[in-house]
Write a protein that binds this DNA or RNA. Sequence first.
DNA 1: GGCGGGACTTAGAATTATGACG
DNA 2: CGTCATAATTCTAAGTCCCGCC
Length: 552
Amino acid sequence: MYIWKFLEHKGPYFPPEYQPLPDNVKFFYDGKAVKLSLAAEEVALFFAQMLDHEYTTKEVFRNNFLKDWRKEMTLEERMLITDLNKCDFGELHAMHKQKVEARKNLSKEEKQINKEANQKILEEFGYCMLDHHRERIGNFKIEPPGLFRGRGDHPKQGMLKKRIQPEDVIINCSRNSHIPEPPTGHKWKEVRHDNTVTWLASWTENVQGSCKYVMLNANSKLKGEKDWEKYEVARKLKSCVDAIRSQYQEDLKSKQMGTRQRAVALYFIDKLALRAGNEKEEGETADTVGCCSLRVEHITLHDALDGETCVVEFDFLGKDCIRYYNKVPVSKRVFKNLKLFMENKQEGDDLFDRLNTNMLNKHLTSLMPGLTAKVFRTYNASITLQQQLKGLSNSSDNVAEKLLSYNRANRAVAVLCNHQRAPPKTFEQSMASLQAKIESRKEQLELAKKELKLAKKEAKGSSDSKLLVMLEKKKKTVQRCEEQLLKMEVQATDREENKQIALSTSKLNYLDPRISVAWCKNMEVPLDKVYNKTLRDKFAWAIDMTEPDFVF
DNA sequence: GGCGGGACTTAGAATTATGACG
DNA sequence: CGTCATAATTCTAAGTCCCGCC
C-alpha cells in the first residue's frame, strides 16, 4: 500500500452545461412537433446522437432508453410519449451531424484556439502535487452524461447515465493542502483526507451503482512503482512455477473433489492464460465468464478430435464479451477429471462447483506471497515474449525484419491472452491498395534490373567514366527498389497477421517493459519503433534501469 | 465460507492527431 | 496544401482482488 504525506489538486473538471436546442430544430412525436422540457430534450439528444449506431436498433437498448427518458419528462410529456417508434429524432440527428461536420471544417486558426483552450484546462486541472512531485492526473474530467453503452448483450444498455454534480463528488486530499473550490454555487459531497488510497476524487455512477475514481496518470511515480512491483511478483513466480506445476499435477489425483477442481482450474489458468473468473450478479451485467465461473455448456469433451486424444473444446464469452474459442489436447488425468465434474450436470451448472476465485487465490498466496490468478497471465505473457524474441529475431536482419519479428512475438502473446479487436473497417481496402503498391514496385524493379543489365553491357570493357557512373547509379536503383519491396512485403505480412489481433493491450499491461527495452538495445532498434510516446512515458522506470543483459 | 462494496488494473471502442501521399 | 489512412490518445466499461462484516 502506498501511504502519501501530501496531496493537493484542483478537483475534477466538469463537462459544459447542456445547451438547449435552437427553435428551428424540432422533435416530432406521431408526426407533430413537440417542444420538450429541458431535461427531456437533453436526453432525447443523447439518443438522436447515436442513431447511426447499431445500439439504437437493439430492443433492450430502446426499452431501457425509453424507460429512463420518461423519468426525465414532465407529467404532460410522459402522458404523450409512450412509444419510441412514434418518435422522430431526425432533425436532432441532422443538427448533431452538422455540428460534427462544422467542427471538422474549422479553420486551422480556430482549431489552434480550441487546442490552446484545452491545454489551459489541462494545465489547471490535469496536474496535482503528490509528495513534492507534480504529477499528471489520468482522468481529471468528470464523465459527461449520456446513454450507457454496455458491451455485448448488456441488460442495462441504453439506460441514462446521469450528469454528475459537485454534490455527488467526494474530494480526497491533504488536510494541509489548498482544498479545491467547488464550481460556483455548488458544494462537494464530502472532503476527506485518506492517505491510504490513491484517488483524488470519486463519485457513484447511477447505472451500475459502482464507484468511479479520478486517479493519477500511468506515467506517475506512484503508478510506475506499482507497475514495477507487478512485474517483480511475476518474475518471482518464474522461480517457483515448476514446483507449483508439480503440485497441481499431484492435486489432480487428490481424494478431495475441491482440490481436484482447483488443480484443473489452475492448469487452465497456467496453460491457457484464462482470467480468474469472479462470480457476477445475474441480470446486472452481460453473461461472461472466466476460469472459475465456467459452466458446463462452455466446454465440450472429445475423446478424439483431429487426430488428437483428450481434446477440450472451449467456447465462451470472456471479458468485454470477447469470444474465447480453442481446442486443447489435455492430459488423460485432466480429461478424466473434467468428465467427472460434468457428470449429472445440466446447462447452466458451474463446471467447478466446489471452487471460487477467493479459494483459489488463498491457495496461491500460500504457495508464494503475492501470488494470485492474474499473476500467471503476467508471467506467461512476459516469458512468452522473451522466448519468442529469442527464437525469432536475428541481429543480421534489417530493422523492418526485426520489427516484424518483434510484432510476431508480441502477437504470440496477444493470441495467448485472447486480445482481439474488430477488424478495421477499411481493412480489405487498405490491404488491396498495399498489394497494388507491391505489384507496381515489382514492375519497377524489373524495369530497373533490365536497365542495369543494359548499362552493364555498355560499360563492359569501357573506361568511360560517364558509363561507369551510370552503372553505379543503376545498381543503386535496383538495390533501393529491392529494399522498398521487401519492406512493403514485410508490412503486408504483418498487417494480414494482425487483422483481428490487438497488440496494444499486452504491450501496455502484460509485457515486462524491460524485455522490450533490452531487446531494442541488443538489436540496435530505436525504442520509439516499439514504444510510442505514451508507452515511453509509462515505462520510463524501465527505460532508465534496464541493461542489455536483462533477463525476465 | 459468503457477500457486498471499495480500490485498483485491464480492455476494446471511439475520438483525435499525425503524417504520407497525390 | 488538402485528403485520407494509420497511429496515438482518450474514454469508460469490465474485470481482479481484498477487506470487513456476518
